[in-house]
Simulated scan of single mutants.
Amino acid sequence: MLDDSELVTLRNRFKRDAEFLMQTTTTTVEDEKSQDEKDVKPLPRINKHSVFWIVASVAVTYYSDFFHVIMENDDIKSWWFNVGLILLGISLSLAAFCIVYLEWFKGIQHYDQEYPAIPPVTTAAFIAASCSFNIALWPVWSFFTPLILFMQFMGVIMFISLLG
Score class of each variant (00 low, 15 high):
T25S: 14
K106F: 13
D4N: 08
D39R: 15
S50W: 00
K106A: 12
E32A: 13
I135D: 02
V69R: 09
S91K: 14
S5A: 12
I70D: 02
L92N: 02
D36V: 10
E114S: 12
S93F: 14
L162I: 09
V121K: 05
Y62R: 02
F153M: 09
E37P: 08
L137S: 02
F126E: 01
M71A: 07
W80K: 05
E19R: 14
F133M: 10
Q113A: 12
L85V: 06
K77G: 05
Y111T: 13
V40L: 14
L7N: 07
D17R: 12
W141F: 12
E30R: 11
D36A: 10
I70Q: 02
T25H: 11
Q35D: 10
R13A: 11
D31K: 11
E32I: 09
H110M: 07
Q35T: 10
S50I: 09
D31C: 03
R13T: 06
S50C: 07
D31R: 12
L85K: 08
S142L: 11
M1W: 01
E19A: 11
V140M: 03
L162S: 09
L2S: 10
A56F: 15
P139Q: 05
S78V: 11
D4Y: 05
A124I: 13
M151E: 03
I76T: 10
N47Y: 00
E72Y: 12
V29P: 01
F66V: 01
V140C: 04
F159R: 02
A18Y: 13
